[in-house]
């Protein structure tokens, strides 16, 4: 019953993944990576894995992105690819 949502979200996930690794700015990568985590969280909720979704929501949306931004803050945003 849930497969249409699942399929659409999965497509979004792949878009986000491709964009995250091809943006030429690391801060943009961090932000898109956050979006990627959102989508993943949604995907797992659709598949009924609530605990995994919760973990991903807390880790991916909250902590992981913040660590990422913090690391970029201390290093540089520049990237060649």
């Amino acid at each position: 019953m849930h497969w249409p949502i699942d399929l659409i979200v999965l497509t979004f996930v792949i878009f986000c993944a491709i964009a995250a690794i091809s943006v030429k700015d690391l801060l943009g990568t961090a932000i898109l990576f956050g979006a990627y985590s959102f989508m993943m969280c949604l995907l797992w909720t659709v598949m009924g894995a609530v605990d995994v979704a919760f973990t991903e929501a807390s880790v991916g949306a909250g902590v992981s992105t913040v660590f990422f931004v913090a690391a970029i803050f201390r290093t540089s945003r520049r990237t060649k690819d």
Partner: peptide, 12 residues
Amino acid sequence: LNFVAVLAASRY
């Protein structure tokens, strides 16, 4: 947590 992430990114 969405709030925290957005805040961190704009705080940059």
